[in-house]
Nucleic acid binder design. Structure first.
Lengths: 177, 177
DNA sequence: TTAAAAGTGTGCATTACTATACAAAATATA
DNA sequence: TATATTTTGTATAGTAATGCACACTTTTAA
């Protein structure tokens, strides 16, 4: 593959960095394309050269985040449920401000769906004993719910404690009778 | 005047910032256009779109510095020799790293000439009693010499002490018999 | 001293970005 | 609700920056 023109890389970087700080600072709903481009010091037209709208931009960034997490999961493939859950919670703890902004926004439904899909996909690779769609969705939704409370600081205890407990609950739920 | 294209502003800023840090870090003689453009993350061609070579770039930056100093001098127009000299020395103290790099370079003769010209011009406005070219050059060269030692940290005493002493010497030199 | 390597300055065709303007849509305000 | 204001998304034509190639000069080191 031939390398990308450095102007494209610069424009995208400026847009994404500005978007991220605005997301954490003001929240997704407050963001306008106009302000992104003003702060990023680029023409508004340039934004539309790379992204359809702010939802498309968010989608791109979420994709990057989930790819990051996927790589981490890949590296720790052999981890058990407890350890694996800790890895997840650590990642979300690390990007708390980012996910907090998305969880508290009213117009990021797509983000929640993608997150659930991601979790189901990852957990599906772990729960190989049974091919049980209901079980998979049950567990994934549960973890996603806890993850949201966790990001919203609604849970007591440190990251590892919470993650361990969730890991244990998952094990118990999955275990055959 | 119509405003400048933001791409031009960005390119120039990237080049000048990179140049300044390289100047202070490595010295003028070590700088290559190639490395400037690599660190500034622009095409080498872009450099030549704005500057003839690294000497031209330096010239531009020196001009900016001297214009800054000129504005300061303008604001403190009514200052006497002592106070005026302190203003000068303060300015050089503030940009010591920059001037140090230029004083220690072997290929910045033009810079010295411009600095001497600047001093003669400024002092010429102060020494209005007599129209004495020799006196003017005598005093200017002397001050420039001290300024160089000062920047090179070859003088004892703090900035104000040194500046005051130089101011006094200037007064004594200029004074009619 | 000579060969190799690194840096210079320029030409060229291509591409990304630019300012500006506009109608339509969304949002704020009265 | 009606109206003013802001934001959106797109069109256009012009400009800056790009990558690459080339001959040339300077620097390095063998």
């Amino acid at each position: 593959m031939e390398k990308t023109d450095r102007r494209i890389l610069k424009s995208k970087k400026a847009i994404q960095c500005t978007f991220l700080s605005m997301l954490i600072e003001d929240g997704f709903d407050e963001i306008t394309v106009k302000e992104i481009t003003e702060i990023a010091d680029i023409s508004r037209k340039t934004f539309y050269l790379h992204y359809v709208d702010k939802y498309d931009l968010l989608d791109t960034i979420v994709t990057q985040r989930l790819q990051e997490l996927e790589v981490i999961c890949e590296q720790k493939k052999e981890a058990g449920f407890i350890e694996g859950t800790i890895i997840w919670f650590d990642y979300f703890a690390q990007h708390k401000a980012f996910f907090l902004a998305l969880f508290t926004s009213k117009s990021t439904v797509a983000f929640r769906e993608r997150l659930l899909d991601f979790m189901m996909k990852q957990l599906g690779e772990k729960i190989t004993e049974r091919d049980d769609k209901i079980l998979l969705r049950f567990v994934s939704t549960a973890v996603l719910g806890i993850m949201e409370s966790f990001v919203l600081n609604q849970l007591n205890g440190n990251t590892e404690e919470i993650a361990t407990k969730v890991g244990e609950l998952m094990l118990k739920t999955i275990k055959e009778i």
